[in-house]
Design a protein around this nucleic acid. Structure first.
Lengths: 133, 133
DNA sequence: TTTCGTATGTTATAATATAACAATTCTCTT
DNA sequence: AAGAGAATTGTTATATTATAACATACGAAA
């Protein structure tokens, strides 16, 4: 089932989303801008607006510790926290979710009546490939 | 036991650390700069250098999703991940660690031979106080 | 077809962070 | 106490990331 089944994208939003989906790597807003100049993008707000929309729909995530953006890998259900595992060396960024971590995060906060609006879990390090070489 | 038992701070580092310890709230680098102008701080590098040092010693943490810095609350042992719980409304920032979450993060990555250098776990939402009012 | 919400283009600027380099201070070691 | 080497600082400039503001255009729906 496609995540887009009930989301209509404008031309700009589609340019940004397709770029991120095709490249499958994290990109800064200004990298996106540069790659889309030929498509008519000329200034940062065009990129940031599209990103904001895509993020609000869960189609793109921001990696806070790198100020970078990446297309979302998988469908999100209600209460799962997204985790990112990022290699410092090659930049490869894997997204996943972990039920144990998500539920533990929610258990902690529910006890305190803290109402979560967003979770950020980012794991930086070196991947096996980069350790070998 | 004081965390500083074997760490010597320079004057600048101490200004920044004391400010963050006393205020006990997150502050941006430029807020720190403004508060320390009277102490002779005049440009960003002075602040960022002190912060870098304090972070490297574990005395200060950066909150990635807010580009802000906060004095560390507690002693860190080998493999614990720090968690931040941040109220969008009042800005209160609580630091804690959770053995279940930390160990689960490490279990996930060890299986894949991914070597962690840093973890970022930030939970944004609304605290009970702010919900009541 | 008017209306209203959303998206866009554009210019300017705000906020966050680092580069580069000369000058100074600190800490050993002798 | 002097000097070498390392670390820290002051300073200026600039890079990087993100938003404000406002006029215009577009799109769905009454």
């Amino acid at each position: 089932m496609n995540k887009l089944h009930d989301i209509t994208l404008t031309a700009n939003q589609e340019f940004v989303f397709n770029l991120l989906k095709e490249e499958r790597v994290k990109m800064s807003a200004y990298e996106i801008l540069d790659k889309l100049r030929d498509s008519g993008f000329s200034a940062p707000p065009t990129v940031y607006r599209a990103l904001d929309f895509l993020i609000s729909k869960g189609l793109v995530h921001k990696i806070e510790s790198l100020n970078a953006f990446i297309a979302c890998d998988h469908t999100h259900e209600g209460k799962d926290s997204v985790l990112f595992e990022i290699c410092n060396h090659c930049g490869e960024t894997r997204e996943y979710s972990d039920e144990k971590i998500s539920s533990q995060i929610y258990r902690n906060t529910e006890r305190k009546n803290f109402k979560i609006t967003k979770t950020t879990v980012e794991i930086l390090g070196q991947c096996q490939n980069c350790m070998d070489s």
